[in-house]
Design a protein around this nucleic acid. Structure first.
Length: 307
DNA sequence: CCCATTTGACCCCT
DNA sequence: AGGGGTCAAATGGG
């Protein structure tokens, strides 16, 4: 199976997990901020999945995704997507650390841009050949907003991700992080309007620690590598390839004898620890408003054990 | 010694 | 030729 397809499925499984969390908290009035946060995550993950699917399908991608694929032959096959992140805080570092480690390899002053662009690649590029990269640049309009472009998906298996094989531990940590985030948001976001952006996810965090004047591009591994790298999705399934696709690996195993495993199987297995079935996914049926212009032929998914 | 950052030079594409 | 992206030597920290 193509790694790109696995990435899409991984992302969809993540969407499902987020939606499930959202569903759990919908009936609790005090969790409204948490629901908003989760909604933002869902939007981001869906966007990412759509982008990945378009790239995997080889069709002409639209929007932000794939914009640079024709500009550089080197990276024409790598999926890209952009996020805008309001970097008004530092506190998100702990709860948004996604386990990835990035190494800065360059910085450029961009023409007609007020702020330089920083270039990062996955630390495991050499050892594991992970091609994931990202570019970080302050927005000209709002210096507190960082425009982060992700290029390629992680194929590495970082230590911290491997240590997260205990799903219950992972869920517990996420739950604590979510509650923490929720409390922070409730304190600091009163009067603010949360609006989902058209093509990007704008994530706000409480303004507590980060000095707005502080240059985000100065050397500060814990700030930069963790903070800036983490916004792709704090709860995103960390890996995307066959070799280390933890959430999907049981799916792969179980599906080997059934290459035409349907979506029910994919999701129920990808989230097997939650003991949920498709009946819990009613909300997923309301897709009438979605304009998905690429077909997903589940029957074409193949689960190859060989990498 | 290893790893990360910095930064000027170089490469590639338009 | 110019701009964006990448390389790699120098440097510093643990």
């Amino acid at each position: 199976m193509e790694s790109g397809t696995i990435s899409v499925l991984n992302e969809l499984a993540q969407v499902y997990e987020l939606a499930r969390k959202l569903s759990e908290n919908l009936h609790q009035p005090l969790q409204i901020e948490l629901c908003r946060t989760i909604t933002e995550e869902i939007i981001g993950s869906v966007e990412k999945a759509i982008c990945m699917a378009k790239a995997t399908g080889g069709s002409n991608g639209g929007g932000q995704y794939g914009d640079n694929q024709q500009k550089s032959k080197k990276r024409k096959m790598l999926p890209t997507w952009t996020r805008q992140v309001s970097a008004s805080t530092l506190r998100g570092t702990e709860l948004l650390h996604d386990g990835y480690t990035w190494r800065k390899y360059g910085q450029k002053d961009i023409l007609n841009a007020k702020h330089p662009r920083a270039y990062y690649r996955c630390t495991h590029r050499k050892k594991q050949g992970c091609l994931a990269m990202k570019q970080v640049q302050r927005s000209d309009d709002n210096p507190s907003v960082l425009e982060i472009t992700y290029i390629g998906t992680h194929t590495c298996s970082s230590m911290e991700q491997l240590q997260e094989t205990d799903q219950s531990l992972f869920d517990e940590r996420n739950s604590r992080a979510l509650v923490d985030l929720q409390n922070s948001l409730r304190m600091k976001t009163e009067g603010l309007n949360f609006e989902a952006k058209d093509s990007t996810s704008l994530i706000f965090f409480p303004s507590t620690a980060l000095n707005p004047d502080e240059d985000l591009f100065c050397s500060s591994p814990n700030l930069e590598s963790c903070f800036l790298s983490s916004f792709s999705s704090p709860f995103m399934s960390p890996t995307t390839s066959e070799s280390n696709c933890l959430p999907l690996s049981p799916c792969q195993k179980l599906s080997q004898g059934n290459p035409k495993a349907d979506l029910t199987g994919i999701f129920s297995m990808a989230t097997s620890k939650t003991n949920l079935t498709m009946t819990d996914m009613d909300f997923m049926l309301r897709t009438g408003e979605m304009d998905i212009d690429f077909p997903i032929e589940i029957s074409n998914f193949e689960w190859n054990s060989a990498a």
